[in-house]
Structure formats: structure tokens, C-alpha cells
Design a protein around this nucleic acid. Structure first.
Length: 518
RNA sequence: GCUCCUGUCGUCUAGUCAGGUCAAGGAUUCUGGCCUCUCGAGCCAGAGAUCCCGGGUUCGAAUCCCGGCGGGAGCACCA
């Protein structure tokens, strides 16, 4: 039967089993992460996020964070937070960032089960340095970096490599006691000098640094390098599944050597690709430089891709989580579009975001011939009438009344054409100048305006409303009049300025909001 | 240059390991329509992918094999 052509098989099925042909499409998008590999090999699943506290967390960091947190929760395991603050020289830690990172994690809804700071563990790393030295799996190298490089590129051992253990330990003590100065000596882990990738050959594990550490001062002069402290800690802390950027691929190979020397079982590795944003900066060093130069107002400048900026702009932690889960743990680089993030966020906040009017660059709108007074009832949410309304009484004097409308609506108004002030009535425009619009009453019914395809615009009675401003994603500021009820909102509350966009309340007095998205 | 990873609508993603139900599904975006006193939401329709390219295996390949090409990362006494 398998050797039949598709056509033959099709006919066979049609005749014998027509019920099989009914299509069952409609596949749901996945909403959970794929299962973890080799969970049974370990007593408890432990994941870890290991940031350098030299900058704030950003959307790129959120990717491994969410995966680690999701998996820890999925398998009733632990999420470990480990600060990797061992390079006061090249990547100096920022003291405030230790807490700032924790705040961001908390905001993201991450449950931190264990917390470690590597600069508190220097003595432990020293202990293991002695161990690998004693066991002949490492050596203290005093070669010039250039000379060493030349040798390892040719797969050759340097003279220090095969010195006896006693000599190695002597040299180690000379690193500790200050006999060797910065740059004089480095501890190297022995690997295969014939490894096809030169980068893994006899990599450096500890070096001398005399720069003052923000947390430890000058307490230590021999500091571990990334692969040493990380390779050690991952095992010591019982990490079972390492989720990290694929740029660490070669580090994985290096750390395997260390763990092999120590007879340890290496954790499972999940490499994730780098995350990009179509607009918005994610590079920690660029952000730090921009803040120092004054280009950005801080780590939460709306132009940045930091978690703090996203939060300020009203993106919800659930949105970030959903986006990450949707992307999934894959080793490909992805470019996230704001459209996708905004759509996700809108779905989340739209049902609960109250509606208000925002009159930017107000323009006087004077109408005449109004037959009666009118009470405009504007629902706080069009889909939830039970939330109530904002009410405005329009009482004409001699048939005349004056409103404020948004300057941006000016271009929609043409002399002789109809315009509807939302929930009020329809007017025929009689005069438009840059500073003022005049119109005369036309009709009351909503349907009339709808059928005439008249523009529907928002408004406030002249003299009503208070000053407010909205910070846009490009850090520009839009000023205007807001409804007084806006002042009843709480900080962080999400709302919508109708026909303008969704925003987050940043401060109430004075009223400042951050624009999220339309 | 060397080492490694990767390649499905503009973007994100499903399917690839276990070849046929995929002339490729969903989301987002855009367009048109309906609905709605928002340019929000909802509903309907449409646009958008020769599954990177070329060979091979097979009755049959997005899926397997080989060769190209493209993209990315790493090659620090940074993390």
C-alpha cells in the first residue's frame, strides 16, 4: 500500500474511510514552554539567572529570566539569583543595582528561591583553585599574554604548564601575598591543547586585580574569572538546567573541562538567541554611557529597552512573560516588534482601562443656535456601562456655548461640513481659523452624523479640565487639558485617552502620564 | 581567518526529532466591509511565505542526506 501513488491512496481512503478526510484545522498557539530534558537525572530542578550588577535589566535579560522562572515553577524547583560581580576593573558593579535587579525580578513576578553574591564567595574559589592546582589540573602561568597566545595557537604548552605541583602552589601563594603584581601571573585550567577551537585551550581561571571592589574594598587581590566562578557555582548550587545566551557556547565547553577535572556531572544547557528590539536600546554599556553623558534621563528613559522603562511606559509584566513564552527557548536571534508587544499589552489592559478626554493644544470651538441645554454622559468604558459615566452639563447662553477641542483635529474641520462632538450633538462648521473654530447647531441625533460620515471628535467645555502632560516613547512631551476625574486615578493605573492612546499614570499632581501604545 | 550556532509570511511563531492529514496553520501588521457616539474593542473578508538555494533519497520532503549561500555568536588576565 505504501508504494501506491498519492492519488491511489487518496482514492482508497475516499472509498473505504471517508470519515478520515474531515479536516480538523484550528490549531491553538502554544502557551507553555516545551518540557525540559533529563529532569529525572536530578533530585530537583534548579535554574539560575546570573547577572552582573553593572546595569539595569532589559528586555534581553527578561528572556532567560522568564524561562528560568517558568521552568522552576513548572517542576517545583528553585530559581537561583546569582550576582556575578567579580570584575571591578572591566565591568564595575553598581551598588544600587543589586536591589534594582531584585525589584525588577519582583515586578516580573519571578520567585527567587536562592540568592548569592559571588564577591562574597572569593575564599571558596581560592579553595578550589588550590584543589585543581594540587591535582595537577591547573597551573600558574607567568607568561606574557602575547607569548602564551602564540604558543596555544600552535597547540604548544607553555613552560609553566608542566612545573611540579609544589612549584605551582608556591606561585599561587606569591599571587596571594603580593609578590606577583597585577598581570604577572594567572591560574590556567588545563584542557586539550589540540582542541580544534583555540579559545578553549588552557583558559584563564583566576587573575590578580588591585582595583577596589564596591562591596569588598581591597579585601582580595586574586579574583576568579567568569568561567571559573560560574563553572564552580553552577555545580555547588545544584543548578540542573542552565539557560543562557548562545554567546556562552564556548564557555560551556570550557566549564565542562573544569567540572570534568572535579568529577562533577555537568548540567543541561539551553542556549537562547539574542533578543533585538526594532527600536529601543538594549546594550547595557551604551545605556550606561548615554546616562552619564546626559542623553538619557536615567535607566528608565522611555527610549530604552530596560525593564524599568517598559514598566514606566505601562507594559505589564504579564505582557513581557507572554511575549517570551511565545518566542520560546530557541538559539535563534529574534527581533521583537513593538506592534507585537503593544497588541499583547492592549489585550491585557483594554478591559480595565477607563476612558478620558485629552485636549492637546486646545483650540476654541464656539457654537451657536443651540436649542436646549444638554447633559453629556460619557461612559468610563464603552464595553462596561456599569463603570459609570463622566457627566458634563452644556447650558447655552443665548444659544451659544464654547468648547475646547484638540488642535490636531483642526484639519478634519471644513467649512460647511458636519462634525459631531462625541455624545453631544452635530454642528456645521462656519468658520475655521488657526486660533478658533465657529460652528452652528445642526442636529442632535448620533445617526445623522454617522450617516454623513462626519468626524467624531472629543471636547471639553471651556474652563473645564486641568493641565496635564503625556511623555511619549521618544521622550517628547505633549501638553494639554485633561478631565478632572483623571486626578482620581492611582499611580501605575492604565487608562485610555480616547482617540489618542493608552497611557500609564506616572504622577497625579501634577498629572503626568506615559504613552504606551494606541 | 579559525571554532560553533542558525535559516518557514514585513515581524513573532506552529510544523522539522518519529517524511504523506501542510498547494504551509496562528499572532501581529496592512487593506476592504460590518458593528461601535474613540483613530480602542469586537466580527467578516482579503493581502502577505517559490518553507534560503541547488542536487540526492523516496510513490511522496518544509521535514531525511550532500553541497552551496545567507545571518549570528565566540576567539579578553569581561561577564
Amino acid at each position: 500500500m505504501n508504494s501506491w501513488t498519492q492519488e491511489q491512496q487518496q482514492r482508497f481512503i475516499e472509498e473505504k474511510y471517508p470519515e478520515l478526510l474531515e479536516k480538523k484545522k484550528v490549531k491553538e498557539a502554544k502557551k507553555t514552554l516545551p518540557p525540559l530534558e533529563n529532569v529525572d537525572k536530578w533530585p530537583m530542578v534548579k535554574t539560575r539567572f546570573a547577572p552582573n550588577p553593572d546595569g539595569a535589566l532589559h528586555l534581553g535579560s527578561a528572556e532567560p529570566i522568564i524561562f528560568c522562572d517558568e521552568y522552576a515553577k513548572m517542576y517545583d524547583g528553585h530559581f537561583i539569583l546569582r550576582y556575578e560581580d567579580t570584575s571591578a576593573e572591566v565591568k564595575p558593579p553598581i551598588l544600587e543595582m543589586y536591589d534594582a535587579i531584585l525589584e525588577d525580578l519582583d515586578w516580573l513576578g519571578v520567585k527567587v528561591d536562592e540568592k548569592y553574591i559571588q564577591s562574597d564567595r572569593i575564599e571558596l574559589y581560592h579553595k578550589y583553585a588550590v584543589k585543581v592546582l594540587e591535582e595537577g589540573n591547573a597551573y600558574v602561568c607567568t607568561c606574557e599574554p602575547e607569548d602564551f597566545r602564540e604558543l596555544y595557537m600552535k597547540s604548544c604548552a607553555c613552560p609553566c604548564r608542566d612545573l611540579p605541583v609544589e612549584e605551582q602552589l608556591k606561585r599561587w601563594n606569591m599571587m596571594l601575598d603580593g609578590t606577583y603584581k597585577k598581570g604577572d601571573a594567572v591560574v590556567r585550567i588545563k584542557t586539550d591543547l589540540n582542541d580544534p577551537n583555540p579559545a578553549v585551550r588552557d583558559w584563564p581561571a583566576l587573575r590578580i586585580s588591585d582595583v577596589e571592589h564596591p562591596r569588598q574594598g581591597n579585601k582580595y587581590r586574586v579574583w576568579p574569572l567568569y568561567n571559573f566562578s560560574c563553572g564552580l557555582d553552577d555545580h555547588l548550587m545544584g543548578v540542573t538546567h542552565i539557560i543562557r545566551g548562545k554567546e556562552h557556547d564556548v564557555n560551556t565547553t570550557r566549564q565542562r573541562w573544569l567540572q570534568k577535572h572535579l568529577g562533577w556531572q555537568y548540567p543541561e544547557i539551553i542556549n537562547v538567541g539574542r533578543l533585538g528590539l526594532e527600536v529601543g536600546i538594549l546594550s547595557k554599556s551604551k545605556i550606561r554611557a548615554g546616562i552619564e553623558e546626559g542623553t538619557y534621563s536615567g535607566w528608565d528613559d522611555p527610549r530604552l529597552g530596560t525593564l524599568k522603562a517598559l514598566r514606566k511606559r505601562g507594559f505589564q509584566p504579564e505582557t513581557i512573560r507572554a511575549i517570551m513564552i511565545h518566542i520560546g527557548p530557541k538559539p535563534v536571534n529574534v527581533t521583537i516588534s513593538w506592534d507585537n508587544i503593544a497588541a499583547e499589552n492592549r489585550k491585557l489592559i483594554d478591559p480595565s482601562a477607563n476612558r478620558f478626554f485629552f485636549i492637546s493644544t486646545p483650540v476654541k470651538f464656539t457654537v451657536s443656535d443651540i436649542p436646549t441645554s444638554h447633559v453629556a454622559k460619557l461612559p468610563l468604558h464603552p464595553d462596561h456601562p456599569e463603570k459609570g459615566t463622566r457627566d458634563y452639563v452644556i447650558t447655552p447662553e443665548n444659544g451659544s456655548f464654547t468648547f475646547n477641542i484638540s488642535g490636531s483635529d483642526l484639519e478634519k474641520l471644513k467649512v460647511g461640513k458636519l462634525v459631531r462632538l462625541m455624545s453631544v450633538m452635530n454642528f456645521e462648521v462656519t468658520e475655521v481659523s488657526s486660533g478658533e473654530v465657529k460652528a452652528r447647531f445642526h442636529s442632535e441625533e448620533y445617526q445623522v452624523a454617522r450617516e454623513a460620515k462626519a468626524p467624531f471628535i472629543h471636547w471639553l467645555p471651556m474652563g473645564v479640565g486641568v493641565e496635564g502632560k503625556v511623555i511619549m516613547p521618544d521622550a517628547s512631551v505633549v501638553k494639554g487639558l485633561i478631565e478632572e476625574q483623571c486626578l482620581d486615578m492611582k499611580i501605575d493605573e492604565m487608562f485610555q485617552f480616547e482617540r489618542f492612546g493608552f497611557c500609564r499614570v506616572d504622577s497625579v499632581e501634577p498629572f503626568v502620564a506615559y504613552y504606551s501604545h494606541k
